[in-house]
Design a protein around this nucleic acid. Structure first.
Lengths: 334, 334
DNA sequence: TTTTAGCACTCTTGTTTTTCGATTGCTAAT
DNA sequence: ATTAGCAATCGAAAAACAAGAGTGCTAAAA
């Protein structure tokens, strides 16, 4: 679609801009990026790239800046995804070999690793409840009026929650509850918990609404409503020049502080393992000044959690995507 | 120590500055705050207050700003701690009446409430491990190679963690572990876990290092190393004019991102229920531009968690302290 | 003795003007 | 098709200026 030289010019401008955060002049990329032409020639190419929407110009007499279309073309067609050094590979390996006890811990460590290598802020979230199957559920009596429920799913996720009662319960009752719930829930999708709780009542009606209802409600809360979101390296963003704008900085803090935005950001884009959203491509208005790269940690069809990198549109896509691809391979091997 | 009128002037300047964030001129406080004097008189007082270190002047021809000494005097001597409205009281009550299952949840809700009412950022941390007594510890077998340990303490804190093994364990073994650990740990301070793990070995040596060691290590990790910190309303700070300075904003995000700073900030100052640290009074260099007010949630001598408010030195101490005092009373009644 | 009116002086803030330099687009030569 | 050359454009930084807010001091008033 673009001639070879135009591609080179676009790539040069994107990469130069990613490095410098300054509008790129025709002079800056001549005799570089394999562009052995005079600045005048480059200028002509730049003018045409601007006309077709790949570049923007902050003002008449300034250099060029990639437009969102420009970034998109770069990401889709020009970017190299082997931008990862031996040291980085070693570092990743050492981090991922940490012994973890739970799947969500691994997702967190991965997010932390990506953040450290790319110097962008990372957020992570556990697997989506809807896709998970309940493998076992255990009730443990704590004291006389407290029950802990531990739910294990097929993805290796373990969630626990505490339920308090107004009256004493004994071990025999707990055994029955254990049996009842496992009978109803084992092998079912987590979503089943959304059904009216009456369904959990036994015919015998031994265990009344008083006992069953709070259990179901609490399990629902912890499994479906309470999406745990982890944040890594929020302060890293403040080193970037785009954060000299109060407006942008404020917006950023706001986004990270709003759970719903982050959750949405991570949950959109189911298609691929790695998804890139550039500026206004993001559904959420609040993210229009940022780029997001999400990475779905999957094994087969099983969703094990999602990690997102949030940074300026002038993000080092090549580095981020390279690291994610490498980690993806690494995790699949584990 | 200060004459009555000087106190009034100081108070007026502190409160005016808290409201406006602008240096306070002699004119601004005449015929106000009970100061029915001409601006010239006030000017003389201000000059003397400055000489004795209670006020600062950004430059020769500007109004006055409280110094840290000024704020300190205000907090210690002048501040009113009944700065709380009926609506606020109602709101607090409704929030604190939420049914919680765990002590740390209550601390979080309290932090959230304080943050919402004062519009400052709140951080919270659970009770200090050192002060807690282990009441019970339960081990639950999950699958064949995983153990969940649930530890309950006298403060109502419940912590759970998962331990993975390389080989199968059976229920009988779990029962023994249960018995062993409760035997050793029940009624002891959490700190006991810091002792060399060999002490947990039975004479019979039935359960080898292989089993005991990972359990002790994991419990140690979750109880002592892993201080859970919660953050409420980080974005609120960005509404304040002092955060227009990139420097300050950056510092702030950095502080909140560094667990150790926050933990230290919350753990210092054991003396009173409510502690105020103004600017450089904070031990940590990073906090020198901020004021911290911490609130220790205690029942008797038992530490149940700490909540901290972080904001500009120009903090509304009166509001913050009033709210905390009210909440303190309210919590004690529960 | 205390308070206040009056005024010169200081310093910040905001605005306008000027300067400087980077970069472009176009034209004409290569 | 490429490039050298150059006028034109615009922003960013510096300089110059004006306005205003506030002080400190002095001398008069209470």
């Amino acid at each position: 679609m673009l001639e070879e030289r135009k591609k080179k010019v676009l790539q040069a401008i994107v990469e130069e801009y990613i490095n410098t955060a300054e509008p790129v002049s025709s002079n800056a990329i001549t005799n570089n990026y394999g562009l052995n032409f005079s600045s005048a020639t480059i200028r002509n190419e730049m003018a045409e790239l601007e006309k077709s929407g790949f570049l923007d110009k902050p003002h008449t007499s300034s250099g060029r800046v990639p437009s969102e279309k420009g970034y998109r073309y770069y990401v889709d067609e020009l970017l190299k995804d082997d931008n990862i050094s031996l040291e980085e590979i070693k570092y990743i390996s050492s981090k991922l070999e940490t012994k973890v006890n739970e799947i969500e811990e691994l997702t967190q460590i991965t997010a932390n690793t990506i953040s450290e290598i790319t110097h962008y802020t990372a957020v992570s979230i556990g697997p989506k409840p809807a896709t998970q199957i309940i493998e076992e559920i255990k009730f443990i009596l704590l004291g006389n009026r407290m029950l802990m429920a531990v739910i294990m799913t097929d993805t290796g996720m373990i969630r626990e929650t505490i339920i308090k009662f107004d009256e004493d319960i004994n071990q025999k009752q707990v055994d029955t509850i254990n049996y009842m719930f496992n009978n109803k829930l084992r092998g079912q999708s987590i979503e089943i918990i959304n059904r009216p709780f009456e369904e959990y009542l036994f015919d015998e009606m031994k265990y009344s609404v008083k006992v069953i209802k709070p259990i179901v409600e609490q399990i629902k809360k912890v499994l479906i409503e309470d999406e745990k979101i982890y944040l890594e390296g929020a302060n890293k963003a403040f080193e970037l020049p785009e954060f000299n704008s109060l407006e942008v900085a404020k917006n950023f803090v706001n986004v990270l502080d709003t759970k719903e935005i982050v959750a949405d950001m991570l949950n959109s884009g189911i298609a691929k393992d790695i998804n890139v959203y550039i500026g206004k491509e993001n559904e959420k208005e609040e993210l229009k000044d940022f780029s997001i790269v999400t990475f779905k940690h999957k094994v087969g069809n099983k969703d094990l959690g999602t990690i997102g990198i949030i940074g300026p549109k002038r993000m080092n896509y090549s580095k981020v995507i390279s690291v994610m691809k490498y980690i993806n391979k690494k995790l699949k091997d584990m």
